[in-house]
């Protein structure tokens, strides 16, 4: 299951039709996939990405085009970047906690319109699983250490205990004032403005994502030692308070 309990079922919530922008109607047709030698994965990844370049840029200094730029895509919340007008469907996917990791990207790229109904990317899909893996691998190396990326070591996955606890806290109403005080401990490193320079931004994170991530530190699914320390003394009430506070903020 993808992170944060976001699953395909939610994609239905974005079913409201999104007006198609005339200018946005560019079709990225899949080209036939080249056979690749293992040592040539980089070139293969880049070649596969060439079918995306009409709409997307990736790498340092990438900008939004018809589609949003894909720098830092791994670990990013769906539909979350400033300066790009996402479809309602994509924004709702992000708001209900969809984070782009290797698994969610893989499912999405297989058939984008199935995974997020009503999203605006005109790409039919990439059926070859190996091609998708190569492309995603290449994209992830292109987006290493990009500000705003939420990814930690490897692919953190909510599972077992983390999920169970997270669900309990998700059902609690957090005290945002208490969260504002507790947040003092976070913003020594995670800038309150939402800027990120080497440490990910946590401003505006959806509650579900926030809560699950903290439980993933508690259960050692995420392994950053500083974060594991910070969550060690946080009770459910405090996690709920922090999530309430940060989810209510907008990056400046």
């Amino acid at each position: 299951m993808p992170l944060m309990g976001w699953n395909k079922k939610h994609s239905g919530t974005g079913s409201r039709a999104w007006p198609v922008l005339a200018a946005g109607l560019v079709t990225c047709l899949p080209i036939s996939s080249p056979t690749l030698a293992a040592d040539d994965a980089d070139t293969a990844g880049e070649r596969l990405f060439s079918q995306c370049t009409t709409c997307h840029e990736i790498g340092e200094g990438a900008r939004h085009k018809i589609g949003p730029h894909l720098d830092g895509i791994i670990g990013r919340l769906a539909g979350s970047m400033d300066g790009f007008r996402y479809s309602m469907a994509m924004r709702e996917a992000g708001e209900s906690g969809l984070v782009w990791d290797r698994d969610t990207l893989d499912t999405y790229l297989q058939k984008p319109s199935d995974f997020i109904t009503g999203n605006r990317m005109s790409f039919r899909g990439m059926s070859d699983q190996r091609d998708r893996a190569t492309l995603i691998e290449w994209m992830s190396t292109m987006s290493l250490n990009v500000p705003g990326s939420l990814v930690e070591e490897g692919d953190a996955k909510a599972s077992g205990p983390a999920r169970g606890f997270a669900d309990i806290v998700l059902a609690m109403e957090g005290d945002a004032d208490y969260g504002a005080y507790l947040a003092g401990e976070c913003v020594t490193c995670h800038q309150a403005s939402g800027h990120a320079d080497g440490i990910p931004s946590i401003v505006g994170l959806p509650r579900a994502y926030f809560i699950t991530a903290l439980f993933e530190y508690k259960t050692n699914i995420r392994t950053n030692e500083v974060m594991k320390l910070r969550v060690a003394n946080l009770e459910n009430e405090e996690i709920a308070a922090l999530a309430a506070y940060f989810s209510g903020l907008e990056p400046q």
Partner: peptide, 27 residues
């Protein structure tokens, strides 16, 4: 930190320190 750590972790730790510096000075 442990001795004999993965160089990638050490590098990530350095980048984290840069983020901390930005964060604390903004704070």
């Amino acid at each position: 930190s442990q001795t004999d750590e993965d160089p990638a972790l050490r590098k990530a730790t350095y980048e984290e320190s840069l983020g901390w510096y930005k964060g604390i000075t903004a704070d």
